[in-house]
Nucleic acid binder design. Structure first.
Lengths: 114, 114
DNA sequence: ATTCTATACATAGCATTACAATGCATTGCT
DNA sequence: AGCAATGCATTGTAATGCTATGTATAGAAT
């Protein structure tokens, strides 16, 4: 496969990074945002999201920090950094490639993008 | 996830069924066809394709039969049958849903379908 | 004729990954 | 005080595609 298996096996990582590109968020917030922005199609589980966030942090794509107003609940925010932005850029291109390739095979011709 | 995990984890199955919808094919041929029709994006491995074909047959989506002219090599052809066509129809819809949901999150807005 | 390459089907074992299930702690509402 | 929602996190499991490997045939090259 020319498209990396990470993408094939699920686009979760780029979806997560894409969210963080807009603004720093904490885990629970990302789950809700993802659901909203995908019209309820993607409802991430904690068991899916947190390992991804931890891996992204370990790889230097994002950073995390506890934050919260005095006396309120502290939340762990994640922010995308340069390396992560570069990575996301590449992955976006891969998604385009993947998407049009699937469409080509599914329709048997070039996607007319109805 | 509303989209079934089968789709999320890879669209291989619908790609395979989609190929067979056009005409009956044998395994090796499918690998080459897939590569051609996807512009080299999908290069299936035998270890990926054959288990899928066997599973599809076991589930009554496709049938197989050995065939070949007298004196030439016998090849195992696979043909999609009714149940498989129905299944493919559903899966195509799922792909549409999945695709537009990813696009929505990636772009942060409705896909303009450039 | 023999060697090599492409063709052709097939399986075992491995790594990845999303999910279910669960745990624990905090906040806000009644 | 009790309960539901919020919030972070891990463990175990099932699914799935890939690597590696095995076997065998057809056709081309030497």
């Amino acid at each position: 496969m020319k498209v990396s298996k990470e993408l094939l096996k699920g686009s979760t990582v780029i979806l997560v990074l894409s969210l963080l590109e807009r603004e720093p968020m904490y885990g629970y917030q990302m789950i809700k945002e993802m659901e909203k922005q995908s019209n309820g199609v993607f409802v991430l589980k904690e068991g899916t999201l947190y390992p991804i966030l931890h891996a992204l942090e370990a790889n230097g794509m994002i950073v995390s920090y506890w934050w919260g107003n005095e006396g309120t609940r502290q939340r762990k925010y994640y922010r995308i950094i340069n390396k992560g932005k570069q990575y996301l850029k590449e992955k976006r291109k891969e998604w385009e490639t993947f998407r049009s390739a699937v469409d080509k095979v599914l329709t048997g011709e070039v996607c007319t993008c109805s």
